[in-house]
Simulated assay, not measured.
Amino acid sequence: MAKKGFFSGHAKSSAALISLGIHAVLIVIALSFVAVTVIKKEEQVFEAKPVSRPKMQLKKLQVPVNIKKKKVQKPKLRKNIVAKPKTKSMDIKMPEMTGIKGGMGYMDEGGLGGIGFGLELDLFGGNKGSGNELEGRFFDLKMGPDQKPSDLAVSNTGDGEKDKSAEKEKNNEFIEAIRSFAGSWNPTRLERRYFQAPKSKFATMFMVPYMKAEEAPKAYGVENEVEPRRWVAYYNGKIAAPETARYRFWGIADDILMVRVKNRLVLDANYPNIKGKITDWDSDDPRNRKLKSGKEQGYVIGDWFHMTKDKPVDMEVLIGELPGGYFYCRLLIEQDGVEYPKGKDGRPILPVFKTQPIPEKLLPQMQIDPGVATADGPVFGVLK
């Protein structure tokens, strides 16, 4: 019998060895693939981490940079720099602030009081305003805008009776002209037809005692051009109440004093002989025109009107003179619900209407009767 070879005798063992070898090779290949895959995945994770780190470092770096800037002494230098001009600015402004009282433009020591910054002061207003005044414009109805005689002018003939009759007729025409104006209260009607003084006046009150009627043209700088009769002065501006309440005016005049608030006529205190000739307004208070003071006629008591605290409203005033001679007007104000001290005839002693405190130097000129009125009381200026 022939001798079997090694592999023939160990066929099963050889097959097992071959199978093991093949599996070993496959395992090596598989492990190599897994290793490569794992290495690639780890590399991807490793690359992602450095991307996020710089962002965090940038944010951290910004904080110390800002802190260092705050620690720099620049703010102190800035304060020192600002302090110098500030001191100079105050040195310049301080004289302007001295004496300020009650509103813009009040300078008591200079006698400029409640009439603004005017260098000249009179009872018809100052020459300049600060915003707390009513601006007044003066019109002579005897002349046209070109200063030529208007239809209300009278040419003196030398015949006393004839000239007197002509003056009376022109006074009636004057009343009609004012009635026409009072229908709209449009100052353009006056500007287009009559002579207007070049300058304005700025008033904070209307407390003119008996004085010659020529003082009004003089106050407006036209005393050489205007004869002191058949003139009017129209004032308008803003007022504001110091408290929310109802108010009303008390007024008196020789010859014309009319007041509108919020485009409504609230007082017609014209001289009694022209009552009802310019407007149809009348008071409903039983004391109307019965409370007199000295030579003056009785005070006219106006209509109530409502005002909200510190809310500006429009106010208009018309004063005027018909035949010449003497003129006066007074305007007081009453607040509903306030108990006032009693004066003559049991009347309330009311405050003078004003948009700024009244300067002491002006009080003697106003000749206020202490039994009728007081310079103390509320201020109705729009600038506090």
Rank of each mutant, 00 (worst) to 15 (best):
96 E>Q: 07
137 R>P: 05
80 N>M: 11
124 F>K: 06
137 R>G: 08
134 L>A: 03
82 V>Q: 15
68 K>D: 05
57 Q>V: 05
65 V>H: 06
73 Q>P: 05
93 K>F: 00
125 G>I: 01
79 K>V: 13
68 K>I: 04
119 L>Q: 09
67 I>A: 13
87 T>G: 09
136 G>I: 05
52 S>M: 12
112 L>Q: 05
104 M>V: 15
55 K>E: 08
86 K>W: 04
114 G>T: 06
55 K>L: 12
128 K>I: 02
46 F>Q: 12
109 E>W: 00
70 K>H: 11
120 E>R: 10
63 V>R: 01
105 G>R: 04
104 M>Q: 14
124 F>M: 04
87 T>Y: 01
97 M>L: 14
90 M>S: 08
78 R>C: 12
49 K>F: 13
92 I>S: 02
74 K>E: 15
73 Q>L: 06
141 L>R: 12
98 T>S: 10
95 P>E: 04
92 I>K: 04
55 K>Y: 08
96 E>G: 04
79 K>Y: 08
54 P>D: 06
140 D>Q: 08
62 Q>L: 14
138 F>C: 03
102 G>L: 12
127 N>H: 11
88 K>Y: 09
56 M>K: 15
118 G>V: 00
92 I>P: 15
110 G>M: 01
77 L>T: 14
84 K>V: 15
114 G>V: 00
90 M>R: 02
49 K>V: 15
141 L>N: 10
104 M>N: 12
51 V>G: 08
80 N>A: 13
111 G>T: 05
139 F>V: 03
68 K>M: 09
93 K>H: 03
109 E>R: 08
96 E>W: 11
119 L>Y: 09
108 D>G: 11
55 K>T: 13
124 F>T: 02
120 E>M: 05
103 G>Y: 03
122 D>T: 02
115 I>S: 09
134 L>V: 07
86 K>F: 03
63 V>Q: 07
106 Y>M: 10
46 F>A: 15
85 P>C: 09
112 L>K: 02
46 F>G: 13
118 G>R: 03
54 P>S: 07
130 S>C: 11
134 L>I: 07
68 K>G: 12
77 L>M: 05
57 Q>D: 07
99 G>Y: 04
108 D>W: 00
81 I>F: 13
50 P>I: 04
122 D>A: 06
84 K>Q: 13
122 D>P: 06
107 M>K: 03
103 G>P: 06
121 L>R: 01
128 K>F: 01
